[in-house]
């Protein structure tokens, strides 16, 4: 079944390219924007770090944010689940819509938002002192889920989805720290998936991993598409090209704030970019 789904998604990628050229998507639901960024800027202590970014994140696609370091990729990503709320000096301007709701609206609770928009970090960060199982269901417990059946179901489903179930099903009670780095990162993905978010933000999820573990995570990202919409920050252009459907290229402006230079289907950005700076970057001429 999974294979079948992958092949379907592969076709969808092709179709997307067509769509942006004006044709109609063949599969219903594929081109619905899940998140819309409209004129988003982020400032720390009054200094802009990201300015005036607008693009849409489409359902069941992988959107990658690329750009040289300092271009504000991570800063922008963290604006999408209000992680900047924890930093006193940070301010976010513009509108970020999740479905129809503005995530920065007064009525939106950041903790509830974060169960809908999950996040995976650069370095694996399983919770210390918790078992593999407890790590997987930590988000559910935080969110008030107490029913054992639901916890078990979510744990298994998310560990299966993170391609970890087979190797840990017999040692769910073991410490998460007994896992390898790549496994820990997959556990963190499982932890994020267990609350069944609509969008999963990934902040350079393979930057601390070896090539084999990286490959495994990349395969996983492609497999996860039918379950969750993914926005991934990566400094690895080849990775962006391998895993993403849409790609946003950011670059530091003269005033040292990150700006969106170009957004579009990944293949197009890598082969036929409109902006010369995008071409230079994807061809490895700087950054």
């Amino acid at each position: 079944m999974t294979e079948q789904l992958i092949s379907t998604t592969a076709e969808v990628i092709e179709d997307d390219v067509d769509l942006r050229q004006g044709t109609i998507a063949p599969r219903s639901g594929t081109q619905t924007p899940v998140m819309r960024l409209d004129d988003v800027s982020v400032a720390f202590g009054g200094r802009l770090a990201v300015k005036n970014v607008s693009f849409d994140v489409y359902a069941h696609e992988v959107t990658s944010l690329i750009g040289p370091s300092g271009s504000g990729k991570t800063t922008l990503l963290r604006a999408l689940n209000r992680m900047h709320d924890t930093v006193r000096s940070a301010e976010v301007f513009g509108t970020v819509l999740l479905g129809d709701t503005d995530i920065y609206a007064r009525s939106m609770d950041p903790t509830l938002l974060r169960t809908r928009v999950g996040m995976v970090f650069q370095r694996p960060n399983p919770f210390p002192g918790m078992s593999i199982y407890e790590n997987a269901v930590a988000g559910l417990r935080f969110n008030g889920v107490r029913k054992k059946a639901l916890l078990d179901e979510a744990a298994e489903s998310s560990l299966v989805a993170a391609a970890l179930w087979d190797s840990v099903r017999d040692r769910l009670k073991n410490h998460a720290s007994s896992l390898s780095g790549g496994e820990q990162q997959r556990l963190c993905i499982a932890r994020a998936l267990a609350v069944e978010p609509e969008v999963l933000l990934m902040d350079e999820p393979t930057s601390a991993l070896d090539p084999m573990a990286t490959l495994r995570i990349e395969e996983l990202i492609t497999e996860l598409k039918d379950r969750v919409t993914i926005v991934i920050v990566t400094h690895n252009m080849q990775q962006a090209r391998r895993v993403s459907d849409q790609c946003a290229f950011l670059l530091m402006d003269d005033d040292r704030a990150g700006k969106l230079i170009e957004f579009g289907p990944t293949e197009k950005l890598f082969t036929d970019a409109k902006d010369p700076r995008t071409l230079d970057y994807v061809n490895g001429l700087f950054g």
Partner: peptide, 24 residues
């Protein structure tokens, strides 16, 4: 990272402190 990891799955500040920081 662990504090943020907890926030990112919907933990409140109190939950982060009680369930992640103190055990850690």
């Amino acid at each position: 990272e662990q504090v943020e990891g907890a926030l990112a799955v919907g933990a409140t500040r109190g939950q982060v402190l009680r369930k992640v920081v103190i055990p850690g």
